[in-house]
């Protein structure tokens, strides 16, 4: 398969949140290191799955890419433009090509706007900025078209969010994200709040839309099976860094990082025959708080295969082990 061109290139992305200063130690500043140096590329038409436990920085990564937060450091290059360096007006123009779908279909829709207005809003904003030239009629047509495409009747356009079910609301959120015909859609846990039978419908919708419009997704979820189903490539995050990144099939067949291995073995499989014979790697302890600078491997405290003297004094970098399979672990490479 010929390599498609890179649509999004994230280099050394860091997002640190200032959480107040300590008076005792001479104004020493405290930070949460939510995202602490993340590199990846997404090629046109592919889906990069971003998986990890709560607090590992998945959502912050997506928001820092969208420039909803201005990153502490790093580059986010979309279509050859570094978004972190753009001025406000240029950023708005560049962001037209990148839209978001959020997790909570209740909180992410304005309860006082009708579904039709919600879907039309991005077009109105871009028209006001003079970036989009569309007549009111064209916009109306586009809204109806979008609603039908995501599986909502056009007659629902005057209804308010509370009149829709969770799955239908997520469809409104998807239609809104598609309104500006973006190339890249950042999906932040879009199916996590949905029931199993509805989740399957929405996942199918995401796949169909990708085939139809050639969309590129950054797809965040904590459910490993969902990520496997939707992704071309998968990145596993832990405490603000990427522990492992590889083609989806490769990662699930042969996880290299001890954290990925534990994560995969901990995820339940809906089949009692398999569950009975499965061996689990049960990690001890909880995910530590990302509030200090680490001098060793971020996973050191919980790793069943840690090597003292190496893992606690050097920080492992992502290194390619096999074709396209990168892992940040000293089991596979020596410290520099």
């Amino acid at each position: 398969m010929a390599e498609k061109e890179v649509l999004l290139d994230v280099k050394g992305l860091k997002m640190h949140f200032h959480t107040g200063s300590s008076a005792v130690f001479g104004g020493h500043k405290n930070y949460i290191y939510a995202v602490d140096g993340v590199d990846f590329q997404i090629r046109k038409g592919e889906t990069l799955g971003l998986v990890g436990e709560s607090g590992c920085g998945k959502s912050t990564t997506a928001r820092a890419i969208a420039q909803l937060y201005r990153p502490t450091a790093g580059e986010v290059t979309l279509n050859g433009k570094d978004l972190t360096k753009l001025k406000a007006n240029d950023l708005i123009a560049a962001r037209k090509n990148m839209q978001m779908v959020f997790q909570d279909p209740y909180a992410s829709l304005n309860p006082r706007m009708t579904s039709g207005d919600i879907i039309a809003e991005p077009m109105k904003i871009y028209r006001r900025h003079g970036i989009l030239s569309m007549s009111r009629r064209e916009m109306d047509e586009r809204v109806e078209q979008l609603m039908e495409r995501v599986g909502l009747s056009r007659f629902f356009r005057n209804r308010y969010p509370h009149e829709f079910s969770g799955g239908q609301r997520q469809r409104i959120g998807i239609a809104r994200a598609l309104a500006l015909k973006p190339e890249l859609v950042l999906c932040d846990e879009p199916v996590s709040a949905l029931d199993v039978s509805i989740q399957a419908q929405i996942l199918n919708l995401f796949k169909d839309l990708q085939d139809e419009f050639g969309l590129t997704y950054l797809f965040i979820a904590h459910d490993l099976a969902v990520i496997q189903y939707i992704s071309t490539r998968v990145a596993v995050m832990y405490l603000g860094i990427i522990a492992e990144i590889s083609g989806a099939a490769d990662l699930y067949r042969k996880p290299l990082h001890p954290y990925t291995q534990a994560l995969l073995s901990a995820a339940p499989i809906p089949d009692p025959a398999i569950e009975k014979t499965r061996k689990r790697i049960i990690l001890t302890g909880d995910v530590p708080a990302p509030d200090k600078v680490r001098t060793g491997c971020y996973f050191y405290d919980r790793c069943p295969k840690r090597m003292s003297g190496t893992c606690d004094v050097h920080v492992p970098r992502l290194k390619e082990v096999e074709n396209g399979h990168q892992v940040a672990c000293f089991l596979y490479s020596k410290p520099d």
């Binding site: 399957a200 199918n204 496997q228 699930y252």
Partner: peptide, 16 residues
């Protein structure tokens, strides 16, 4: 309709 970890598949999911 549940995607399964042990069965990689790129087909459409069954949905109710």
């Amino acid at each position: 309709s549940v995607p399964r970890l042990d069965q990689a598949s790129s087909d459409r999911l069954f949905s109710i």
